[in-house]
Design a protein around this nucleic acid. Structure first.
Length: 494
RNA sequence: CGGGGUGUAGCGCAGCCCGGUUAGCGCAUCUGCUUUGGGAGCAGAGGGUCGCAGGUUCGAAUCCUGCCACCCCGACCA
């Protein structure tokens, strides 16, 4: 028996790290806080990218690529932006190394840059500097660009996928002629993210807007999708910002409108990152390892041949190839694991840990009977099914698993979302069960800060209209006793 | 940056307190044979600057000094 995965109940964060490690998603790197994404993890990211990229294209966006390096002075242009990011920027000061007889290899003092470069923590500044050149007239608008890139934020404390110093993401940066159009874009992209989370990741999310203190540095409004993890903590899974004219003003990006007036351009930015992989793990997986929703699974079905004699081997592998061809032509991502040197039991375990949704086992007995053994990862049920109509059955089952995972996660979230009306219960719920708490808030940063200080819970968001209509009625903030316009969503978060 | 802890084979650890020949164990790896319907068994093999640098000593993984790295808790975290 190889080393086991720590059960969720005994140590959730160790469980998470064990799943990442055992499922071979990622590894630690020689550099603190950075990670190596392994083939399985990267294939998962590629599937996410593909689905998201299609949705971006469908909503009229084009991909671009801007440089990794940003002139340091750009960071200073937007006051709030620099304040938010200054503490976590990697700065490039030299361009050469030099072998010093005493000190060894050092940055060559003679190669000091005239102006430092910052490794992008996000690209608003460099993009808006360029947009200012591209946009002169209302005819140049809108510009709806996205880029797939890596960014660096010098975090103090990191965790694989959830917070790493370098991570992969996409960042959309759009430019609009009117405020309304930019706000509409912001909300549209929030919607795209929510749809992706729910339909592809099978992860229910709450859409909402951040309070002023949780807002993106430089934004007018930050919208987000918030998901609930199995340990009762919330995770921000994506953000969409309405930037107003802040960056346009900072980079002097004006256009002439139809009335022949000079006006600043309206902006949005929005992003999701490899953090989504962390969310995916924490929402669905169990003590046996990873569970991947079928729509995102790099391998949806794995077939494991079983045989003793060479003669059996030939028959079983021939049948396996036929099944594989059938399933592939039906559009199923299918793999036959015919590796020698690993026993079937070992392979069963391997794919269970790696979260492949459906496992088939095919032995001489099955070939004889025209059957195949089918095991589903989500419920761990095993059954013998007929070869007849297998492709149809598997497609139906994959769809069923996708829906089932969503429903399971939604049921968990609903069971762990509570309406609370007094502060003692609030703290008690957080300590004992966690989860989302819907409670009144007086709208002040003081109360928000006090609650954060005392309970470590933050306002995850003010949910968008219609999320919980009954929460939109006025009431009283139980902490300050002041009037409240509506309930907001609290939780402890990652 | 504050508090605590750990550095010994790819991974996980024992040995250190109380110095003493070729530094052990489990997993993993390699070879052979037997196996193969839920993480195989037996036999054999390979793999080590004991974090780094000094010091004490006839002799240091073990004692002393300094340094470094990593982990956990806190601070921090669009």
């Amino acid at each position: 028996m190889a080393d086991a995965i720590t059960p969720r109940q005994s140590d959730y964060s160790q469980w998470y790290l064990d799943v990442v490690k055992h499922a071979k998603l990622a590894d630690y790197s020689p550099v603190r806080g950075c990670m190596i994404i392994r083939p399985t993890g990267y294939a998962l990211w590629e599937n996410m990218q593909r689905a998201l990229d299609d949705m971006f294209k469908e909503t009229g966006h084009e991909n671009v690529y801007f440089p990794l390096f940003i002139p340091q002075s750009f960071m200073a242009r937007e006051a709030e932006h620099v304040e938010g990011f200054a503490k976590e920027c990697a700065v490039i000061t030299h361009s050469r190394l030099k072998l010093d007889p005493e000190l060894g290899l050092i940055a060559d003092p003679d190669s000091k840059l005239d102006e430092n470069l910052v490794v992008r923590p996000t690209s608003e500044t460099i993009m808006w500097d360029t947009y200012a050149k591209w946009i002169q007239s209302w005819r140049d608008l809108p510009r709806k660009y996205n880029q797939w890139a890596n960014v660096v934020r010098w975090e103090m404390r990191t965790r694989l996928f959830l917070r790493t110093m370098e991570f992969l993401w996409q960042e959309g940066h759009t430019a609009h002629a009117t405020r309304d159009e930019a706000v509409e874009e912001t909300l549209q992209m929030l919607d795209v993210y929510a749809t992706f989370a729910e339909e592809w990741m099978a992860m229910p999310v709450v859409r909402g807007v951040k309070t002023a203190s949780e807002r993106f540095a430089g934004a007018v409004d930050t919208y987000c999708i918030e998901a609930l993890m199995q340990d009762g903590k919330a995770l921000q899974a994506g953000t969409s910002h309405f930037l107003g004219q802040n960056f346009a003003k900072a980079f002097d990006c004006q256009f002439q409108n139809r009335d022949n007036e000079l006006e600043y351009v309206w902006a949005t930015s929005w992003g999701v990152s490899t953090r989504l992989i962390g969310a995916l793990i924490m929402v669905h997986s169990d003590d046996q390892g990873l569970i991947i929703p079928p729509r995102l699974a790099p391998t949806q079905v794995v077939l494991i041949p079983i045989y003793r004699s060479d003669e059996d081997r030939e028959r079983v592998l021939a049948e396996a190839a036929t099944i594989a061809a059938e399933l592939r032509s039906a559009g199923v991502r299918m793999k036959v694991d015919d590796r020698e040197g690993y026993r079937p039991g070992w392979k069963f375990n391997e794919y269970e840990v790696q979260g492949v949704p459906i496992r088939l086992a095919l032995g001489p007995r099955d070939v004889e009977n025209g059957t195949v053994e089918l095991a589903r990862r989500d419920t761990r049920e095993k059954m013998s099914v007929s070869r007849e109509g297998l492709a149809d059955e598997i497609q139906t089952l994959l769809d069923g698993i996708q829906v089932g995972l969503y429903e399971r996660a939604l049921a968990y979230r609903e069971a762990n979302t509570r309406i609370v009306d007094d502060y003692d219960t609030f703290k008690q719920v957080l300590d004992e069960e966690g989860g989302f708490i819907r409670m009144h808030w007086d709208g002040t940063a003081e109360t928000e800060a006090r609650i954060k200080e005392e309970s470590k819970a933050t306002i995850r968001c003010i949910p968008v209209e219609g999320t919980w209509p009954e929460d939109e009625a006025p009431g009283t903030d139980p902490v300050s006793g002041a009037p409240s316009a509506r309930r907001v969503l609290y939780a402890r978060a990652y």
